[in-house]
């Protein structure tokens, strides 16, 4: 099954939008939250679990370390499964936003049109997730404590407030060409590697451009999170196809200080599943992309 560009595949676009709305409308147990909200909660909790505590580089169970690629691949697959279930569409695969194609004018991308994600604003006032659509944010990070707090408000975006650009196709290609290795010691953001380049210059720049809810640890609150990370995953897949012999690092022989990031470590999850980076390196078991380059 194929993951498509959301701007060139109407079926994928419609299913993604309808799937997000359906998961938002589906109660999570007997809580005030929805199945959709669970992903913002999970992302927040993983991001606030330091691995190990005290590391000054900010490495946590989902970011700033090797597991950034596998853990987000894991989260996307679980979310994709949820949309398949709620829409009863077994062939559904997440679409991606090829933001590099919009680098000349990211705010002008058709992605922000009323039939896709709607535009910028506090609150967002257009599109299927606009104020009044029922797509309300139910939990967000507390800015003063790193804990999360209950809210009930519309989605927020703020283009060009914290960042004005998204990476270009040339920057993506340069990243792939510059790093034939996935990671290197000490496996954090103090040294450059493909993982570092993927996460910091490429991935974080897009979060900053979108702004609003995408700036926080509960960034999956904005559906663009999934389209953006699907594209990040696609770039990692392209890197994997470019360097098929390159190893995921660190191996399991690395010290326990790298737990949560080694190839056979269980990845952070509240679900009853023991999934490791090694389980997920071959993404073609789960999906494929229409175009890698």
């Amino acid at each position: 099954m194929i993951r498509h560009n959301i701007l060139t595949n109407d079926v994928a676009r419609q299913n993604f939008v309808q799937g997000c709305l359906a998961l938002k409308a589906e109660p999570l147990g007997t809580t005030r939250y929805s199945t959709y909200d669970y992903f913002a909660f999970w992302h927040h909790r993983a991001m606030n679990f330091m691995t190990p505590p005290g590391n000054s580089a900010g490495r946590n169970a989902a970011h700033a370390g090797p597991v950034f690629g596998p853990w987000h691949r894991f989260l996307l697959i679980v979310f994709e499964n949820q949309i398949r279930r709620v829409l009863n569409e077994d062939d559904f695969r997440l679409p991606y936003w090829d933001w590099a194609a919009d680098a000349a004018s990211p705010a002008g991308s058709p992605l922000w049109g009323p039939d896709v994600l709607g535009g910028s604003g506090n609150p967002v006032r257009s599109g299927p997730f606009r104020d009044g659509s029922g797509f309300n944010i139910r939990l967000t990070q507390d800015g003063n404590s790193d804990d999360w707090m209950d809210v009930d408000r519309p989605l927020r975006r703020g283009f060009n407030i914290f960042g004005t650009t998204v990476p270009s196709a040339t920057e993506v290609t340069n990243s792939i060409n510059s790093f034939p290795f996935y990671e290197r010691q000490p496996y954090n953001n103090d040294v450059s590697s493909f993982r570092w380049d993927l996460e910091i210059p490429l991935h974080s720049t897009v979060h900053r451009f979108v702004g609003g809810d995408m700036m926080t640890t509960t960034s999956p609150n904005d559906p663009v999170f999934f389209l953006h990370h699907c594209n990040i995953d696609r770039i990692w897949a392209r890197w994997q196809s470019t360097y098929p012999q390159a190893l995921y690092l660190p191996r399991q022989t690395a010290p326990d200080t790298y737990r949560f990031h080694r190839e056979d470590d269980r990845m952070h999850t509240f679900l009853d599943i023991n999934l490791t980076p090694a389980d997920i390196l071959d993404y073609t078991v789960y999906y494929d992309y229409d175009i890698l380059n």
Binding site: L28, G29, Y38, R45, N81, R266, H268, I280
Partner: peptide
């Protein structure tokens, strides 16, 4: 891995109960 993921049941949310507050971190963590 595919079989493991297929068994994930977020929709059942058996651990969730009435609130998410008690889910500080996963028990195994």
């Amino acid at each position: 891995g595919k079989e493991k993921v297929a068994g994930c049941k977020v929709e059942h949310a058996e651990e969730v109960g009435d609130d998410l507050r008690h889910l500080d971190q996963p028990d195994w963590v």
